[in-house]
Design a binder for these strands. Structure first.
Lengths: 234, 234
DNA sequence: GAGTGGTCTAGACCACGGC
DNA sequence: CCGTGGTCTAGACCACTCC
């Protein structure tokens, strides 16, 4: 692990352990430099990382402050697929409905930029949060990248397996959000009634080298659909 | 304007002008260093900025590539309030329903971290996209920060005025998303029917110094609610 | 004006991709 | 192995905040 990542992790842990709140001041750069025995730019890099993650904000001429949104019970839209850590407050489980190798739909092939004759893993799951249905998920994984999946992996965190088991590096993703009404089938899986509202999210996940490896379609239970997103200006 | 921002803007313009597509390769670092006559870290800073914005992605040992999502007609969830540039494809207009100075609701006071006796500007607008209703917006601006607003400003881009007119620097924001069904009043403003789905977004905007200055509640027309979000891993 | 974060440089060395 | 991006350093100078 790189220095600036270690330092960022240490600072984040410090904030967590001391239960610091929004606006609380952290030590000044010079102190941090001395404490971690690194140069200024390394500390700066660490703090940039934490700023991107929405953990701190820096004010020139003033200091470094903790950033923390106030509301509880909201799910971070980004820490759902792939970044499970933030969900420690929640119990996430999955019920696997379907898992097989097949040819992709035209839509899936397009989004994964593969040929319709290439193989994909198809995964269909219902995910539960604290015992309640959270969402219905249908995912297509490019089999030439995600070479193996089994029921055990798919019941747990697929993304954890991709990183640790396969040693792949997940880069960026594009999310597409829609609002609509539940179909009969979706309602059945989620234990809701047809015609109730839904949040539908399609995501294309890429590796750091830019190759799309997963196309996911997720329908969220509106009762559980409380999401938070932290953003920064450019 | 800072060097690295100028360079980032230049590179972004180059991508735009040459209509580069996802995966297209940009010149290597050394070339860019020479071309802009700056040191390596400055170019790196520029590219980091573009990476944050979702304009490029960098692959170690390989190169710098253009990142561009494929779907058209989607609104970027972040470039709506405050970052209007990305919406050039769309015609955005506003109809002002209400504009006045008042005491904040308990909810607004809480989210702006002010007292219920402090003054706020209250703005209620319906926003149109290409002539269709896009959303109903109710905003509370901390009057001790946003000292003046009038109908003309509020009909145009409030955030542009805050930046240029008031010289304030917008920092970060917290978005809270919900899905639900339209009330009678909301449906009336949006020209829809009660009971249809809605996306409800509450946002708290902060200045770079961390002070919240705007609390907004927006109800989106589900027919227009096609949003895209580009994210990066940490 | 003192304190504090941000920008920029020049250069050494490292790590990954792909031929 | 070469080309390419990433990390890290030491230090100069700049810009903002707040007393």
């Amino acid at each position: 692990m790189l220095k600036y990542q270690q330092i960022a992790a240490a600072i984040e842990k410090y904030i967590e352990d001391h239960a610091l709140q929004q606006g609380d001041k952290l030590p000044v750069l010079e102190t941090l430099m001395a404490q971690f025995e690194v140069s200024k730019s390394t500390i700066t890099k660490s703090l940039e990382l934490l700023e991107k993650k929405g953990v701190v904000f820096q004010v020139r001429g003033s200091g470094i402050f903790v950033r923390r949104h106030k509301r509880k019970g909201y799910i971070s839209l980004f820490s759902n697929q792939g970044f499970k850590k933030d969900l420690e407050d929640f119990h996430l489980t999955s019920e696997v409905i379907e898992l097989n190798v097949r040819k992709p739909s035209q839509e899936a092939a397009l989004n994964l930029t593969i040929d319709e004759n290439d193989d994909v893993y198809f995964v269909k799951r219902v995910r539960y949060i604290n015992g309640q249905t959270l969402c219905l998920e249908e995912s297509y994984y490019n089999k030439s990248i995600i070479t193996y999946l089994n029921k055990e992996i798919v019941s747990e965190s697929i993304f954890h397996y991709i990183r640790e088991g396969l040693g792949l590096k997940i880069g960026f993703s594009d999310l597409y959000l829609h609002v609509g009404l539940l179909t009969e089938e979706e309602a059945a899986y989620l234990g809701l009634k047809k015609g109730m509202p839904k949040l539908h999210v399609e995501t294309i996940f890429h590796l750091t080298n830019g190759k799309p490896f997963d196309f996911s379609k997720i329908t969220y239970n509106y009762e559980q659909s409380q999401f938070v997103i932290q953003t920064n200006s450019f």
